[in-house]
């Protein structure tokens, strides 16, 4: 490693990335200060019992429009240690590409049976599971016709492991032009859910998405 840290990439055709990406190389953390840069998130059990099922707004409500899917996986650090009791905060658009968020002014169709927000905890082995509606893609740059491929946002916090990421879907036509996918290069493949048989559960598709939290922070206290 040289005298400075990573130079952050700017997502091609992403205006916000252009506005918000630091231009200077990241600075190296002096070794004596290293431990102070490792936030340890206190255990947060902030989820409601029904939130794992994002295909409905409540257990006694009908299913939202679209294909119900199950997403399962395991959260671990780069050294393979499972991250137990981690909080996964999940958000995604509905079938029509609309978020039920007060700042989503896209005008796309809302679905009265879709919230698109849920929280689950990992178990002792770092495993998680939730149901969602397979989200719609949405037009992010109407001026150049660039779409955001369908994706599910996930925020993971557990101890010194912290990550915000997105799960993408295989063989989607818009994957290749996504600014962040372009920055990931070949490693983009790691962010694609792996289709699997949903088994006997009441969903139509299943995906495995293992999450590996990289970087020095996640393994700092191992």
């Amino acid at each position: 490693m040289g005298k400075h840290g990573r130079v952050l990439g700017i997502g091609p055709t992403d205006n916000t990335s252009d506005q918000r990406t630091p231009r200077q190389p990241l600075r190296l953390i002096p070794e004596v200060a290293r431990s102070s840069f490792v936030p340890v998130v206190p255990a947060r059990y902030v989820t409601n019992p029904h939130e794992w099922d994002m295909t409905r707004t409540a257990p006694d409500r009908p299913r939202a429009d679209g294909v119900p899917i199950e997403v399962t996986g395991r959260v671990c650090t780069a050294s393979g240690r499972p991250v137990p009791n981690a909080l996964l905060e999940i958000w995604s658009a509905n079938l029509y590409g609309r978020y039920r968020h007060i700042e989503d002014h896209s005008g796309l169709r809302l679905d009265e049976n879709h919230l698109g927000m849920g929280r689950v905890l990992t178990d002792d082995e770092g495993r998680y599971r939730f149901w969602a509606i397979s989200p719609g893609a949405y037009l992010a740059r109407p001026d150049i016709g660039r779409w955001r491929p369908k994706h599910i946002h996930m925020s993971i916090s557990g101890g010194a492991s912290r990550m915000i990421t997105q799960m993408y879907f295989p063989d989607e036509p818009n994957n290749a032009s996504d600014p962040m996918a372009i920055l990931m290069g070949d490693a983009f493949e790691r962010n694609i859910g792996k289709p699997r048989d949903p088994g006997g559960t009441d969903v139509e598709e299943g995906y495995d998405f293992d999450i590996v939290i990289g970087g020095r922070n996640a393994t700092f206290f191992e």
């Binding site: 780069a78 990421t165 997105q166 590996v212």
Partner: peptide
Amino acid sequence: MSELTSNLLPATNEDTCGPYFPIYF
């Protein structure tokens, strides 16, 4: 990110938070 230390698992890529982190959280 460099992964010269080959006994580490390849990390999932971080990604943008997007504009719609739920206020509900």
